[in-house]
């Protein structure tokens, strides 16, 4: 009896860990693509926030969570066009311009929320998918096969992005530009166009991540993401710029969050301990940065604007 209760809790914790990992995964896959091409985007959190509000408002009006996801992507595309212009054409310092995007997104999402919604109203969340046979499997079914579509999209993107980076011309161009833009340029690869596309795809994934978060939670509020976007950036380092590594990192963070939530629900840990647990992502990230910096090399051209002939 006790055993089956324990199994139930473990299963539901893992299932919620996978759900919580999803926004991290989407955002950090996008960031990884951008960084591979040599562009650091510190504004992920701001893009996620606007994407989250866009999706929330769309679902509030239409009751259609899928439309919400599309709006999240759309918001990301717009922000990507904007960030690409600042970074690629105006050659702004990437360590700083992203902070501007963050502050702008934080303010804009809150402003729009207060203007158009005011008091928080819950929205229709995703319906979990139901797979014949698989979803009904004991234990495994609840852990893996009763999630909403966005979870499968996010995890499905991992092999897709891995394939694109490794086996397509576009992926090769991205990697080449991130390592040695001069050489790529001399071979006729457009550095600006390729980076622009990577930035736009990356930002649209950040917008999608925000949308997934808002719809999963069924709510929007000021600073909904609570720095998830910054963690997502760190996850790229954690995962050493590979989609698979980023996925593992996202799962670790999702699970840590799920365990903390579970402990809070059961009142197992005192307040001070849950404060310490809240610090865990940031501290793990710093440790990961140290380990990764020692063992892996970041894309050589990361944060360096490309000016032909300089």
């Amino acid at each position: 009896m006790v055993d089956s209760f324990a199994v139930l809790i473990i299963v539901s914790t893992i299932a919620s860990g996978i759900r919580l990992a999803t926004p991290f995964l989407l955002a950090s896959l996008g960031e990884a693509l951008g960084q591979r091409s040599g562009v650091l985007n510190l504004g992920v959190d701001g893009v996620m926030l606007i994407g989250a509000f866009g999706a929330y408002y769309t679902v509030l009006q239409t009751n259609n969570p899928y439309l919400g996801l599309l709006v999240g992507i759309g918001v990301g595309v717009i922000m990507g066009v904007f960030y690409g212009f600042i970074t690629l054409y105006l050659q702004a310092e990437q360590g700083v311009s992203g902070i501007g995007i963050y502050l702008f997104g934080l303010g804009m999402s809150d402003l729009l929320f207060q203007k158009f919604v005011g008091t928080p109203r819950p929205i229709l969340p995703f319906m979990p998918l139901h797979f014949p046979v698989l979803s009904d499997l004991p234990v495994v079914g609840e852990m893996l096969f009763q999630h909403s579509i966005i979870v499968y999209i996010a995890f499905g993107l991992v092999p897709v992005m891995g394939f694109i980076l490794k086996h397509t011309t576009y992926g090769l161009n991205i990697r080449a530009i991130g390592e040695n833009p001069e050489a790529a340029d001399s071979l006729g690869v457009s550095v600006t166009a390729t980076r622009y596309s990577a930035i736009i795809i990356g930002n649209s994934l950040a917008g999608l991540a925000g949308a997934a978060l808002a719809i999963e939670l069924g709510i929007f509020q000021q600073n909904l993401t609570n720095a998830m976007g910054f963690i997502a950036i760190a996850l790229v380092y954690f995962g050493a710029w590979s989609p698979k590594g980023v996925m593992i990192g996202s799962l670790v963070f999702g699970l840590v969050q799920a365990i903390v939530l579970q402990c809070k629900t059961f009142g197992v840990i005192p307040r001070s301990a849950s404060d310490l647990a809240a610090m865990a992502p940031a501290i793990i990230t710093i440790l990961a940065l140290v380990v990764v910096a020692k063992r892996f090399k970041q894309p050589s051209a990361l944060t360096k604007p490309y000016v032909r002939g300089s």
Binding site: L90, S97, L103
Partner: peptide
């Protein structure tokens, strides 16, 4: 006015500066 306007102004100021620096 929502107090969030301050953040928008801060962000915009930085963008415009980066743009003007071009």
């Amino acid at each position: 006015l929502p107090s969030a306007v301050t953040g928008i102004f801060q962000g915009l100021l930085l963008f415009y500066l980066l743009a003007a620096d071009f």
